[in-house]
Simulated scan of single mutants.
Amino acid sequence: MQEGRGKHWVLIVALLCSLHLSAQEVSVRGGFVEDSLLIGQDVNFWMAATYPPEMEMVFPDSLYSFAPFEFSDKTYFPTKVKNGLAYDSTVYIIQSFEIDQVQYLWLPAIILNNRDTTIINTPLDSIFLTELAPVVSDTTKLKTNVDYQTVERTFNYPLLYYILGGLILIIIILLLIFGKQIIKWFKLRRLRIQFEQFDVIFSDYVKKLKVDPDPELAERALVFWKSYQQRLEKLPFSVLTSKEILGYDFAGELEKPLKSIDRVVYGKRVDENIFQDFLQIENFTQHRYSKKVEEIKDGK
């Protein structure tokens, strides 16, 4: 592009040097260097003037409206005086974004006097727009293609990473704020589910013992109670004898029912009121469950 501009300027200077005017004559000339243009492409418009040296002449600057073109840059050649005449020349680099087939431009040279100004315009010059694609008319029919086109789907991994990162951040914040409450809720929920399962099965044992006080059934009920009580108290109830269980302070109220159950289980005796001893054990377990719930709520 720079070599092309340099060749244009050499051509312009050669044209200016070939002019021969009288000492008092003012002449303003100009025009496009190129014959055609593309939309948005730089084109050159040259402007030259010959006038007496005592005059003051001004060419358009970047603030001037070059419509329908837009100003991009300019190259100004210093004034030369030869044979009693002053020579000025400038090359403007302009662009067009219009779609007219032929576009026109002229530029003014302003002579400054003491009281007024004189404007002399360059001749009106034209340049042709080169089309890269033909213009589609209103009557052109478009061919419809409804065939299915397979498009490769690309998974948006960055978005996934942002979502996962956001979720992890939210979880961390929730744990920091509500961590203790969440842990407490899970403990209470697990404790409640375990007790509800125990209560259903143990109540069924009590009902069966009321109808049939069988020593083997009483033994199975006792083993089941010890297994649950071990999970509740975090103590080895399953391997403890009744005497060892009564060694804990909180189990003092079990002395009578446990001794009665031992006589039935180990002595193979039938006691029609054995179900009442298991009811006392069931009430004891209910009380211990409620106490554990309160301890968890208090943070113990």
Results as ranks from 00 to 15, higher is better:
272 E>W: 02
214 D>Q: 06
104 Y>I: 07
13 V>E: 06
289 Y>K: 01
257 P>N: 01
292 K>L: 11
169 L>A: 15
99 I>H: 09
206 V>S: 01
232 L>G: 02
230 Q>N: 13
136 V>W: 07
157 Y>M: 05
119 I>D: 07
82 K>V: 13
33 V>M: 06
58 V>I: 13
130 T>I: 14
218 A>G: 01
209 L>V: 01
101 Q>H: 12
235 L>M: 04
16 L>H: 09
141 K>W: 06
194 Q>P: 02
291 K>V: 13
97 F>N: 11
239 V>R: 10
242 S>L: 00
198 F>W: 10
233 E>D: 15
100 D>T: 08
29 R>Q: 15
142 L>I: 11
78 P>D: 14
235 L>P: 00
111 I>K: 05
151 V>F: 09
263 R>Y: 03
138 D>L: 13
151 V>T: 15
107 L>P: 05
245 I>G: 01
132 L>G: 11
216 E>I: 07
90 T>F: 05
120 I>W: 03
137 S>G: 15
89 S>T: 10
99 I>N: 11
17 C>G: 12
195 F>E: 02
142 L>Q: 10
120 I>V: 15
177 I>E: 07
211 V>H: 09
185 W>A: 14
142 L>H: 09
153 R>E: 07
169 L>P: 03
211 V>L: 13
187 K>T: 02
213 P>W: 01
191 L>F: 03
176 L>E: 04
136 V>E: 13
179 G>M: 02
299 G>V: 03
111 I>G: 04
204 D>K: 09
97 F>K: 11
111 I>A: 05
206 V>W: 00
145 N>R: 10
283 N>G: 04
282 E>A: 02
211 V>C: 04
169 L>W: 10
83 N>S: 14
272 E>Y: 09
195 F>A: 01
65 S>N: 12
261 I>G: 00
227 S>T: 13
113 N>M: 10
106 W>Q: 14
71 F>A: 07
215 P>E: 01
282 E>K: 03
22 S>H: 06
133 A>Q: 13
35 D>P: 08
176 L>D: 03
284 F>M: 00
6 G>C: 06
92 Y>D: 04
112 L>M: 14
58 V>L: 08
82 K>I: 12
16 L>E: 12
176 L>H: 09
223 V>K: 12
219 E>G: 08
115 R>G: 06
231 R>N: 12
115 R>Q: 11
111 I>E: 07
216 E>L: 08
140 T>C: 07
203 S>N: 15
43 V>N: 02
2 Q>P: 06
168 I>W: 14
159 L>Y: 06
266 Y>G: 00
17 C>L: 13
85 L>D: 02
254 L>M: 02
260 S>Y: 01
231 R>D: 14
16 L>Q: 12
141 K>T: 08
124 L>K: 08
171 I>L: 15
85 L>T: 10
258 L>C: 01
200 V>G: 03
154 T>C: 08
55 M>Y: 15
3 E>V: 11
30 G>E: 05
